[in-house]
């Protein structure tokens, strides 16, 4: 057995720690070593690449109508065609651009707003906290879907609208989570020590508290992206998005509208739906991995 036996003397009371060792960015290093994370990351990178390269690798212009109507997958059209003769592969590839852009955009924006509001709430406390919490709670209480529908109906159609609508309905959840985390860190001695040292409010919030929230911010962000992609698809499926753009959601909308669901032309709606599911899956995998890394109790036992 070649396991290294550490005697307690190396870790006993008062002994100096290991000399000068730079701490690696442990979260990143941990992610790279974690199987779930790698799987999820590879999946996500794949989709991002496909989205970026869509103009190059797409076999056709997705909006081009042809008379090759409702053809099942074949050598000419790998994913078949829609009832308007559009190439499904092209639609799927081009659709990824919008879906991922809006999804990540919503994720970033909702997380940023959540950080700012959560942090201000936690740091200033009392009245500021009461007001911001009230504000957050109102947005949490408002039923999401009806609000989505109402806003989408009144605002001019377009990708931007969809994004705004999703951000407006999505920020409150992350704000609440981030506020809770910021509060728990706010109460720690090192924050008080920074205040006593003379650090200003902004510095304390963003250089003392925020770095300790990294993993929660990460998981919140991933959750918001999943929300962004899924909700966008949902909105568009209902026809409330911008039906003229190509995205996975609108692909599903047209598929449903044109009766592909009825006629069993599975190749029309399956790719887009599957893509949404796969991206969400990849994000969830990375999310689990981040949880695992930051909470040692969740780590699965490694063999050997």
């Amino acid at each position: 057995m070649t396991a290294a036996v550490t005697t307690v003397s190396q870790t006993a009371a008062g002994s100096p720690g290991p000399t000068r060792r730079r701490k690696p960015r442990s979260l990143l290093r941990g992610l790279l070593g974690n199987r779930k994370a790698m799987f999820g990351l590879v999946l996500l990178v794949l989709f991002v690449l496909l989205a970026l390269l869509a103009p190059v690798i797409s076999p056709a212009d997705p909006s081009q109508i042809s008379d090759a109507i409702s053809l099942p997958p074949s050598a000419a059209h790998w994913f078949g065609t829609t009832s308007s003769g559009q190439d499904v592969l092209a639609l799927t590839l081009w659709g990824s651009r919008s879906s991922l852009l809006v999804g990540f955009g919503v994720g970033i924006a909702a997380t940023l707003i959540g950080i700012v509001i959560g942090m201000l709430s936690a740091y200033f406390g009392k009245i500021v906290d009461d007001l911001l919490s009230l504000f957050t709670n109102i947005f949490l209480l408002i039923p999401g879907l009806p609000l989505l529908v109402v806003l989408a109906a009144y605002l001019p159609p377009g990708q931007g609208t969809v994004a705004i609508v999703l951000i407006v309905t999505g920020w409150a959840g992350s704000a609440r989570v981030l506020r809770a985390q910021a509060l728990s860190i706010r109460g720690k001695d090192f924050v008080a020590a920074a205040v006593v040292t003379g650090e200003g409010a902004l510095r304390v919030m963003f250089r003392e508290i925020l770095p300790n929230m990294a993993s929660v911010v990460m998981t919140t962000f991933l959750g918001c992206v999943i929300f962004g992609i899924g909700a966008q698809a949902g909105l568009e499926f209902l026809g409330l998005g911008d039906t003229s753009t190509v995205s996975w959601g609108t692909n599903l909308y047209w598929a449903s509208n044109n009766g592909s669901l009825m006629t069993g032309n599975w190749w029309v709606f399956l790719p887009s739906g599957l893509c949404i599911a796969l991206v969400a899956f990849g994000l969830a995998m990375v999310n689990y991995a981040v949880d695992e890394i930051t909470n040692p109790r969740l780590r699965t036992r490694r063999k050997g």
Binding site: A3, A4, V5, T6, T7, V8, R301, R302, G304
Partner: peptide, 14 residues
């Protein structure tokens, strides 16, 4: 007394 965890061992009482 030797504690074992994964690949590591710690001799707590020697």
């Amino acid at each position: 007394v030797t504690y074992r965890g994964g690949a590591r061992e710690l001799r707590a009482v020697d």
